[in-house]
Design a binder for these strands. Structure first.
Lengths: 206, 206
DNA sequence: GTCTATAACCGGATAGAC
DNA sequence: GTCTATCCGGTTATAGAC
């Protein structure tokens, strides 16, 4: 079909609205406007706000987790694995900067729904919650036995996600929008890899 | 005064509510309840929600920025400076885990107010926006000239903030609440310092 | 300054015509 | 399926007694 179905238009609009404002802040009217229909029709297709929200979230989280599991399980030696991990993860984040922000916010909003959904999607993938950790452990066993996998994973994730997340703060504190630079992401990929692999001792003068 | 003034009680309550739910999600009724007064009295002391919000934010942001500027300007050699930076920052974050989450969320909520406030507080401190960057630059000049200060700062901030921010996600993905361990913060301080200083090459087997 | 009661408004949801 | 008009609960804000 060349023209988007109405359900698809609604979902697209809903994703934008929910990611931007969260469940509480999102307005059905605004979603209807974005989808270029009226509220009544919106309610006709998705009974209520909660239903629509769950639909959107299910999609988004499944997409995220699938992507993460694929990449963390990649082939190659340690360096290749690490670089692939960083690159794919960073790009995933940059594809939708609002998404991590949204997850981080909503997960703390006292809603039981989101954690439950996380667990459910993880299990749908037929893998244990600590599956990710086991892969990292195995990888580190080849050369970096003394490195705690939890700390390692925290470090890599932090370096990838936080700068994207904090972009608006950085603009203020640094006094310049580093993200304006189109190849900032590429430089950041390299930076993270080098930083993780060698730390700043790699920069040390002779 | 031994007993808290009512304005102070209101502000305390408002901080909790706003940090937990954001501006849109916060309820004046809930703030009144927390302060153990009724809505009318709340409106008597702070004309409207926006006013109260601005008051709260002004305090919070000023406190944060003051703290950051103090610590990043500390004495000692490079290692001492780095460790002080990490320790103070991590503790600041842990003191109020909801705060960074709140800032990150609200800064993107399309409100003009928050970025403006940031800029204003920065200028009140009588320092340029890139003041922070200059300190880092000077520090790195002593031994790590090739290290980009922006990337360096991003790395340190990421490692400190993100794990605290993402705690609820980590619980799901890792399958265990690493933060349950009471001295996790201490171990994390050491980990970040070592990671930044030597990178994982420090772990490498002989 | 502090309260109760209520106005004014907004947003989610529904009724019912077409 | 799609629309207009409306209901109803919840939230901010105010009026007015004490």
């Amino acid at each position: 079909m060349a023209i988007k179905g109405i359900k698809e238009r609604i979902l697209d609009a809903a994703v934008k609205e929910f990611l931007a404002r969260g469940f509480g802040g999102a307005r059905m009217q605004s979603i209807a406007d974005k989808a270029e229909i009226n509220k009544a029709l919106l309610h006709y297709h998705y009974n209520n706000k909660q239903k629509l929200y769950e639909e959107v979230l299910q999609d988004q989280i499944a997409r995220l987790i699938a992507s993460l599991f694929d990449l963390i399980d990649s082939e190659g030696d340690f360096d290749e694995w690490l670089m692939a991990l960083i690159r794919k993860y960073l790009r995933e984040i940059l594809k939708s900067p609002g998404f991590s922000r949204f997850i981080l916010w909503e997960l703390n909003s006292g809603q039981k729904f989101m954690p439950a959904l996380f667990k459910q999607v993880l299990q749908q993938k037929g893998k244990e919650g600590n599956f990710v950790l086991q892969i990292v452990e195995r990888r580190l066993a080849a050369g970096y036995k003394a490195c705690d996998p939890v700390q390692f994973l925290l470090n890599v994730l932090s370096l990838c996600i936080y700068p994207v997340l904090a972009q608006p703060i950085l603009v203020q504190v640094l006094g310049a929008d580093v993200f304006q630079n189109p190849d900032f992401a590429l430089r950041r990929e390299e930076e993270i890899f080098n930083f993780v692999k060698y730390g700043i001792s790699g920069y040390k003068e002779a």
